[in-house]
Amino acid sequence: MRKIYKAHKIYILPILAAIIMLASCKTERVLPVTESVKDISGSWQVIRATRNGTDLTNIIDFSKFRVNFKDGAYTLVDRLPFLVNKDGAYTLDDPQYPFKITFIATGAQPVATAFTFPIVNGKRQLSLTFSPGCPNNSYVYVLQKTN
């Protein structure tokens, strides 16, 4: 009788340990993270500009130039050379992961360009590369929201 008890004791301990270990494991569900929709609505101003690599930021007065995005439309204020010369509509290729923006000026063909949308010093920036004049002359405007 005593032997049987001892034998049981030998089995019970590892079983208990196994139960405790199994109970300690908990399946964690990885919730899919939803990428936020990139919203470029607002008023943007040029904070840095280059032409063929030459810095133009302090050579041309960009202080009044604005690109305003709202509800799928854009307006230009105090125009400077840009992808388009008139107000119109815009679209992003992907609302969550946009790599391309298309401007459709009123009465003109759509003009698309690759753009980046980084956060710098806590603020969103919009970097656009384009050629408003000769195709060999490449301009980069880095824009930042004014508000």
Partner: peptide, 13 residues
């Protein structure tokens, strides 16, 4: 004149 080749919609230095 820089850029050496440009149009009137370029910024010309």
């Amino acid at each position: 004149v820089d850029p050496p080749k440009s149009q009137d919609n370029d910024l010309v230095t």
